[in-house]
Simulated scan of single mutants.
Amino acid sequence: MTKPQDDTETRGWLDIELEDDMDEELEQEVDDARVPPELRALLAERTKSTIDRHTYFNELLRLQGELVKLQDWVRYKGLKLVVLFEGRDSAGKGGAIKRIAQRVNPRTCRVVALPAPSDREKTQWYFQCYVPHLPAAGEIVLFDRSWYNRAGVERVMGFANEGQVEDFFRDVPEFERMLVRSGVVLVKYWFSITDEEQQLRFLMRIFDPIKQWKLSPMDLQSRVRWEQYTKAKEEMFERTSIPEAPWHIVEGNDKKRARLNLISHLLSVIPYEEVPHEEITLPERVFDPNYERRTLPAELYVPQRY
């Protein structure tokens, strides 16, 4: 049976869209593959991703389509969704956040990545700087690191004393219960990678001028204090994984699988349905027969070099 012409045309448009999306992802893959000569021997020993590129792209786009439906449901029902992303440096939090935010509406889904606290903020209630960024009804907030800085980097690096850390552990379960009681859906992810994988990712940043900005003195110290971070993480799980907001660990050595697994899990946490939409029709353009488009000066245009 021959398919109607309009269906063939639709499939053509979908194929073009898929190619564009794959090109965007391929750009990231090429960036990751630009390995400096100094690291090629190390990279040769690295365990390769066992998910093929075609499967990864198709699953990513399918899951991103579901994220759009989830966002529609959050807006339709007036839900308030907060997702925390924590983990070791270079574990893949940023890449996962980017894939979640890539296709959704940025007006109601935003990423919060707060800088180090100012001198004034250091004198405030610890959670105060995070509260203004919490969502209103119909919004999603993705925290690229969160109030758990106190249980991790601040504790390990000595920016918070043991009394402050103990206060945090006492307060944070009740703080999160208050959020949940107020209607916030709170989801917490920890990205986990091995010692060897972090070492390789750090070395790739050191030897790649394009990626050096990702390294900070704090990142380098995290290598020195790997075991201290491990102990801090274990205590954090033990004391802050509560029934209202448990921790979820994402295995991050394989970036592709980590992204797919996280998005799939996030979609499973919140029961959602497809929201009915009014059919959209493109209105006819108003045409004025007396209007003549002006010729703009050539110097206003960006040179056509490609």
Score class of each variant (00 low, 15 high):
K93A: 03
R75W: 12
L81P: 10
A96C: 15
V68K: 15
Q64R: 11
E66C: 10
E59F: 05
F85R: 02
D72C: 10
L84N: 05
V82E: 09
E86N: 12
L63C: 07
D89C: 10
L81S: 12
D89P: 10
Y76R: 11
L81R: 13
W73I: 02
D72K: 14
E86F: 02
L67I: 08
D89E: 13
K77E: 13
A96I: 09
K93Q: 06
R62F: 15
L81I: 15
R75Q: 14
L61C: 06
R75C: 06
G65Q: 05
W73Y: 10
R62Y: 14
F85N: 02
L60T: 03
V74P: 00
K77I: 04
L63K: 07
A91K: 03
L63F: 08
F85E: 03
R62V: 06
L67Q: 07
L79T: 05
L67R: 02
K93W: 02
E59I: 01
E66A: 14
N58V: 14
G65W: 05
R62N: 14
K93C: 08
K93D: 04
L63Y: 09
L60S: 00
W73V: 10
S90R: 03
V68M: 15
R88G: 12
L63M: 05
K69V: 08
V82C: 13
R75K: 14
K77N: 09
L84G: 07
R75D: 08
L79Y: 07
Y76S: 03
K93T: 09
L84Y: 07
